[in-house]
Amino acid sequence: MKVHEAGRKQGPSMMWRLYKSIERGIVPVLLIVGWEVFSRSGILPRALLPAPSQVLIAWADWVFATDGNTQSYSGHWLFDVAASSFRVFSGFALAAVLGIGAGMAIGWSRTVENLFEPVLQILRPVPPVSWIPLAIIWFGIADKPAIFLVFMGSFFPVLLSTIHGVKNCDRNLLRAGAMTGGTPSKLLRYIVFPAALPSIFSGLRIAIGSAWMLTVTAEMVAVKSGVGYVLWDSYYFLRYDIVIASMVSIGLLGFLSDYVIKRVGAYLLRWQRGSTLQKEG
C-alpha cells in the first residue's frame, strides 16, 4: 500500500518513502542474516553458536511439538511460560500492593518515615539475588522462593517511587482539597494518590524488569520449572539452541508485560497528555 501510494510521487520521494518504511527493520535483519552466515561458515563449531534457523526449529518444537527435537520439552513451552509468568505476577503484585501502601504511609507521615526508613535503607542495598540461600531454606524448592525473590526485587523500586511521588504532591492542591472540606484520609485517597500515580507507574515499570530478572535467576537455582529452568537445564545438555530460544522467550515476555503496564499507565494518566510533549504514553 505504501509503495502504491509512493508510486504517484516523483522518484526521490518514492525511494525515500520505501527506505523510511523499512528503516527500523534494516539493522535487525542484517544482524540475523550475519549471525546465520557466520554460524554456518564453520569459524566456530556449530554446536557453540547455533544459527537462528536452528534456534527457530528448536523453538517451534518446544512450542508446538513439531518434530520432538527438544525431547522432554517438546510442546511444553506454554506450561513453562505460565509457570514463570505466575511467579512474576505473584511477586510483582505483592510488591506493588505493599510498596504503594508503605510508600504512601512513609511519604505522608513523618512519624512512619522516622520509624521505618532506617530499616528500609539498610535492606535496600542488599542485592535481591543474595537472598537466594535464605529463600531456599525458608521456602524450599518450589514457587515460593521465586515469588519471594521477585518481591524483594520489585518492592524497593515501587516503594521509592511512591514515596517520591507522595512527597512531590503539590501543596497547593492539598490546600484546595482542605478548602473543599476534605478530611486527611480523603485528601490522601483523592489527591495524594492520584498526584503520585505518574511516579508510581515509573516505579512499576522498573519493578517489572527486575521481576523477570529474578524469576529467571530463581528458576536457574531454586525451582524445577519455568523458562529459566529450561534455559539452565538445556545448558547442561549442551542444547544452546534451546538456551537461546529461552533467552528470546524471556525477552518477549518481559517486553510484553512492560507494554501492558505502559498501556494501563497511559490510560490512567491520560490527563497528562495535554501538559507534556509526549503524544503516546
Partner: peptide, 10 residues
C-alpha cells in the same frame, strides 16, 4: 487561588 489549583487528573 492565584493559580487555579485544579486537580489535573480530573
Amino acid at each position: 487561588f492565584q493559580q487555579a489549583n485544579l486537580m489535573p487528573w480530573l
